[in-house]
Design a protein around this nucleic acid. Sequence first.
DNA 1: CAGAATCCCGTTAGATACTG
DNA 2: CAGTATCTAACGGGATTCTG
Lengths: 130, 130
Amino acid sequence: MDLTALREHSPEACRGRETLDRVAEKWTLMVIAMLGERTKRFNELKRECVGISQRMLTVTLRSLERDGLVTRTVHPEIPPRVEYTLTDLGRTMLEAIEPLLVWTESHAARIDAARAAYDAEHPDRQAAGT
Amino acid sequence: MDLTALREHSPEACRGRETLDRVAEKWTLMVIAMLGERTKRFNELKRECVGISQRMLTVTLRSLERDGLVTRTVHPEIPPRVEYTLTDLGRTMLEAIEPLLVWTESHAARIDAARAAYDAEHPDRQAAGT
DNA sequence: CAGAATCCCGTTAGATACTG
DNA sequence: CAGTATCTAACGGGATTCTG
């Protein structure tokens, strides 16, 4: 893999890093993963993204829409119904993060163990509020 | 792909989400990517992770070390030399994020375009300080 | 139901200065 | 060189209230 571009100072490289930042935003991966299953409504996403607040879901979705990763469809009904769907671009991103999601689930225990071991060996270095 | 676990409230699911958070920390992907090339020294990483501050690199590396993803080796010389290397676990993570890194580089332009288009169509909705 | 708006606090992260 | 320490501004993000 060639990562040369990430280190450069060109405008393209900056965009690459910005995109990396977007990926690294707290709820991006989670929301994309959930929408990867199928089109979903606001409250459905809210229920599934355990721990997300209403506000952050709104902000995240708006941001994903802006980046062309998610489509927002308002159905003019009462009560209102709004559906969110991955765009083609969003689906390419989903494919790109699938290995990471799988890794996350299958290695969580090992990381937990490593963390405990580290904390046991470095009783001094531990952060206060963790 | 089965993402059921991410939605659950079990301890394992919580660990999964925590691991997702760790992955989504701002500099994690970048540092892992850079170390994926080879063992590197502190200042080398600092130079390559454009935009990172000394403090954030320290914090990120310490955190990665704690999670068993990176090894820190101090060579007792003067001037001091400290080297960082991916562990086996870290290398499995590197493999998991490679598709994402590639995606990031190859789709940055499209995201940029989508963003510009969105901003043009929604002159009202734009955030102030973006 | 699906938000928008407001308030407000804790954490994050940059800048700076110091050290083994 | 490879950090640590401190101080502070900025931002993220929760809780609450209000609306079409």
